[in-house]
Design a protein around this nucleic acid. Sequence first.
DNA 1: TTGAAAGCGCTAACAT
DNA 2: ATGTTAGCGCTTTCAA
Lengths: 340, 340
Amino acid sequence: MATIDDVAKAAGVSTSTVSYVLSGKRPISGPTRARVERAIRDLGYRPHAGARALASSRTNVIALVAPLRVAVNVNVIMEFVTGVVQAARTHNYDVLLLTQDDATGIDRVSSGSMVDAIIAMDIEEDDPRIPLLAQARQPAVLIGLPRDSSGLSCVDLDFFGAGTATVRHLAQLGHTSLAMLGAPEAVWKRHTSFWDRTLSGATYEANARDISLHAIACEASEVGARTAVATILSTHPDTTGLIVHNEAALPHVVAALRDRGLSIPDDMSIVAICPQHLATSQPQPLSSVTIPATAIGKVAVDMAIQRLNDPEQPAETRLLAAELTQRATTAAPHSAPVAP
Amino acid sequence: MATIDDVAKAAGVSTSTVSYVLSGKRPISGPTRARVERAIRDLGYRPHAGARALASSRTNVIALVAPLRVAVNVNVIMEFVTGVVQAARTHNYDVLLLTQDDATGIDRVSSGSMVDAIIAMDIEEDDPRIPLLAQARQPAVLIGLPRDSSGLSCVDLDFFGAGTATVRHLAQLGHTSLAMLGAPEAVWKRHTSFWDRTLSGATYEANARDISLHAIACEASEVGARTAVATILSTHPDTTGLIVHNEAALPHVVAALRDRGLSIPDDMSIVAICPQHLATSQPQPLSSVTIPATAIGKVAVDMAIQRLNDPEQPAETRLLAAELTQRATTAAPHSAPVAP
DNA sequence: TTGAAAGCGCTAACAT
DNA sequence: ATGTTAGCGCTTTCAA
């Protein structure tokens, strides 16, 4: 492999000149630049990443800590990862992938100076990774909203806003009896932040509008979805609007309602909180609040890079606004036409 | 951050001794080792990855080129990735994630010495990445089977064997009229290797047993699945066994058959080729050939590491045997009981 | 069994 | 606008 000295020799300049041509950190005359670039191309020169990292203390690599279990929401996870990787590339960064359960991973890549920044997804209220990230020398960005972010930057969808938006939408259509089909039992218990916030938002808005709202857990399976639907219909038969925040159960919920002879949206309106492709790929496109996973991944990277380039930059939390798109599954309830 | 020299000073030894304690590449006396290890712990010392890479030409990082689009088979992709990351960790390697469409990625990480080996997944018959990988200085392993692997190591499920296994299973149950519901049109066109091989295997076995088999494409959507089922039932109404090699369509195929009043497996046997969790998470667990994604990822890493440690090691292709597990969706056809 | 020292390939002062 | 050079922190030969 050609080194920077080979290039310098071939171009008849000093090594530093080659370095500066590459980094653009000082002005280079036209002819010199041309000769250097020529030599670089001729030799197929590529800077050695390790040497660069050693001399500059910059790796141009970001660590991404992702939940690589076979999860219910693989699609969302995938979208986050994609967003992060693509955004990183636009800043000329690559991504080192760590799994959630690689307990020593954060410390390893941080202390070993393998990366310049760390992004952690799927953050829970009291996430054990937070202290590790807080003491890392590299800036860290959390995707999700913990109870205490202790000076770390955070980015997430405004799930509270997503909750209020779904209730508001249905309320404005004239619904007064709503049900919410949420995360599995285990997620309620874990107090995974996003679910707590959606529920709070929806409850808050329902209270404010004096509308009834009953939320229940739902396992991520066909059986779980059918059970949840059955429970709702039997305990609250007057329900006319259903909010579903559970990607895996979503299609089965729709199927279960149809099987019971309920027509959507005539007998039951449905609004989902899910990735857009899931909402639009259904036979009947779902009214939904989109989880902008790609965008969130991108913002996470942008925040990390910003803090890298300006260490004075304080940590901040950014919540992306929830936007509800009405599609085919919501309408005024039969029993109560839209208020004027 | 503490350096190796800090540790050496604290332990009262030379830097090389510290290095050798860490690498184990030469014998160290008990007391010396103890003092060094003590110093390492006290100082919280971690070798600098870049410095190490520069001095040793080893990064302890593997590149993984993955299709991070919102694909139909995200679950499988995720499983591959998980398998690779976990296996890499057992060898003390980390994983750098590149996306399929990052055209310059392979060259960047290879020429820049960012990684020690490269694993590429979702390989097609004439994959444009193959020449890039073949000329890389690092060993490369392909997950998938290209037409010409030009000296690269490959690993994959034996899809030909998967095809024969599904037909054999149904034949042994007494079926004589089979249909195969495969990949979307686009995949047939692209000649994605796995699909071609499954089809060949199934066709081969059907011919050998003088059984009829009709394969058709199927789009990865509910509509696509229903259309495909309708086509099969109308053009080949005598079909009693269905082979489904299309994760996304799978649940909809089952639903479509049920909607038409066909009972499974009484009126129609179904055997799938899909990841295990998909087969077992259905309300009626599917007889299936499992795609052992995690295992394949692991094998890919093992092969890469092996070639790293022994450059003489020649490239090889490893096909993991297809194993069919009978679950609830296959039985003898009504019309023709099991042969004795 | 241990130490001294020469690089590995680059960046970024410091010179000119 | 360009050149010289001292490190960056580690591995590994060569010596003892």
